[in-house]
Nucleic acid binder design. Structure first.
Length: 489
RNA sequence: GGUCGCGUGGCCGAGUGGCUUAGGCAACGGUCUGCAAAACCGUGUACAGCGGUUCGAAUCCGCUCGCGACCUCCA
């Protein structure tokens, strides 16, 4: 398969043809979660977006190394001297070890990702396991003259860096603007400029997570881990760096500066940012407290939710919007996605039943071509899905006899849908009744067979009673031509 | 305040100069059914407002209004 993929590069603000630095190898780094709380809907977006990219690149026969970090050192609450890290703060709150918190939420993150059918990354490095490398990079930056030490803390000298480099090129910021616009925070007197950022931070006495270094006992600055772990596993120059739009500044800008200051060259060829999920038009985030965790989504246990939404509904919902657009959460929107995905999956069931005939009256080739064209256009999944629905209509028309398809085209269509829906989009059928036991199923079937008898005898009072009573319990009965189907509500 | 982005039919959500009636959901009509549900088929003609450029703009430019993101941890 020929690669015609274009992706939008935040660095150039343009769609660019994707050309790996060392084909057939592709290096991809994505900012992962800070594991101090349950993953929420917002975390699902980059996970699914870059899972899609991972899957598609593999389909294009690239050898992809996908690195996604676990931030378990904890970011500073603020840059002030009193700053304590988030992991430590939460640990005190719950009176357990920081690493216990880390383990707990890493586990739940992994569980959620599996539910969303997001493939595990090739490497999932922990920041806490790369303290030595972070110190080494900090040392390198210091040696190259782009950092300074104050009271055991090490800061990146943005002003000096920007004399020979373009600090702000990713986010479109100018250093003069930063000078006038950076908000004043308490206790920043250590830094030469408010926009300087920590490479190493001396730990306060109450700070639990700490490591020795030549500057002080402390912890690495929060931007450093990504610079370190991306270049460690992907090389000083690699292809794709992804993450949420909210990380563009300062996090990714700082990463660019650190890597350049340490290694003398830009490390990333394509920067990609997924947009945010909003709720009532506002960003969903931990700090705003308006988030819905993935566990809540899947169970329906949140006041904002009218019902539970399955992992695949959530995945489909996210794929129905382009990754660079904001996506607004609402029950109506999720319910629409749920129905839409059912339509898609039912179409695929119909596809399995189709009998080929001599002639093909539908244009399979055009469907495939426009579908891949959409995917190649910066992963335009909403367009792709629209085309898939066009194909579903085609499938239904073949099934009803209004169109026909020959054996060869039927095989082609089937393999196309399997490839795109399951392998690339990463959707999978969900069985609603999977948690019910067989005896229960047999009992329901018994009841429905009695109903079938009653219908045959035109005893509609009985047949309707069985249907209505089952409905009340939450079992939906659907009549078919030659029998019935039922499902749990 | 600075920088950036958005405003599409009842809802979600694509599209970026001239046929896309995008697509999904909902609604309505039909087929099917003992009735219903489900399923399938069909229908609706939108682009914040004002002005400009153009033979022609939802799409380009300007202004106005509204909303949001980043500038502080965040996916």
């Amino acid at each position: 398969m020929k690669n015609n993929l274009s992706i939008y590069n935040t660095l150039t603000r343009k769609k660019e043809k994707f050309e790996p630095i060392n084909p057939p190898f592709v290096g991809m780094y994505v900012c992962g979660p800070t594991v101090y709380g349950d993953a929420h809907l917002g975390h699902a977006r980059p996970a699914i977006t870059f899972d899609l990219l991972f899957r598609y690149l593999k389909y294009l026969e690239y050898k992809v190394r996908y690195v996604r970090n676990i931030t378990d050192v904890g970011h500073l609450v603020n840059d002030a001297d009193e700053g304590e890290d988030k992991i430590a703060k939460k640990a005190k709150l719950e009176h357990i070890e920081p690493m216990e918190i880390v383990q707990k939420y890493t586990n739940s993150y992994h569980r959620n990702m599996t539910q969303l059918n997001a493939l595990p990354p090739s490497i999932e490095p922990h920041a806490s396991a790369h303290i030595i490398e972070q110190e080494a990079m900090a040392k390198k930056i210091l040696k190259n003259g782009f950092a300074y030490e104050v009271n055991g803390s090490l800061y990146f000298d943005v002003e000096k860096y920007s004399k020979t480099n373009n600090y702000g090129k990713l986010s479109g910021r100018k250093i003069e603007d930063l000078q006038t616009n950076t908000r004043e925070l308490a206790g920043q007197s250590e830094k030469k400029n408010p926009f300087d950022f920590a490479l190493w931070k001396k730990a306060d006495p109450e700070h639990i997570m700490r490591w020795p270094s030549e500057w002080s006992e402390g912890f690495p600055g929060w931007h450093l881990e990504c610079s370190v772990m991306s270049t460690k596993y992907l090389g000083n120059k690699f292809d794709i760096h992804g993450g949420g739009l909210d990380l563009q500044f300062p996090h990714h800008e700082c990463e660019i500066a650190q890597s350049k200051a340490a290694n003398g060259e830009d490390s990333v060829k394509y920067w990609m940012h997924n947009n945010l999920i909003t709720i009532e038009g506002q960003k969903m985030s931990k700090s705003l407290g308006n988030f819905i965790t993935l566990d809540e989504m899947f169970s329906g246990k949140n006041d904002l939710l009218e019902q539970a939404y399955s992992p695949m509904t959530v995945r489909f919902f996210i794929l129905q919007a382009h990754y660079r657009s904001t996506l607004d959460f609402s029950n109506k929107a999720l319910q629409a996605s749920e129905k839409g995905m059912q339509r898609l999956m039912k179409g695929l069931e119909t596809l399995k039943k189709i009998k080929p005939s001599g002639e093909t009256s539908v244009d399979i080739k055009a469907l495939k071509e426009k579908s891949f064209k959409a995917l190649n256009d910066d992963l335009n999944t909403p367009i792709l899905i629209a085309h898939l629905f066009d194909g579903i209509k085609m499938i239904n028309q073949i099934q009803s006899g209004d169109e026909t398809i020959n054996k060869e085209d039927l095989e082609s269509l089937t393999s196309f849908y399997n490839l795109v829906v399951f392998d690339i989009l990463g959707l999978k059928p969900e069985n609603k009744t999977e948690n019910s036991d067989t005896k229960f199923e047999e009992a329901i079937n018994l009841l429905l067979n009695i109903r079938l008898e009653a219908k045959k005898n035109k005893d509609f009072a009985t047949s309707d009673k069985i249907r209505d009573e089952l409905n009340k319990i939450g079992i939906i009965v659907k009549d078919k031509k030659d029998g019935y189907e039922w499902e749990m509500k």
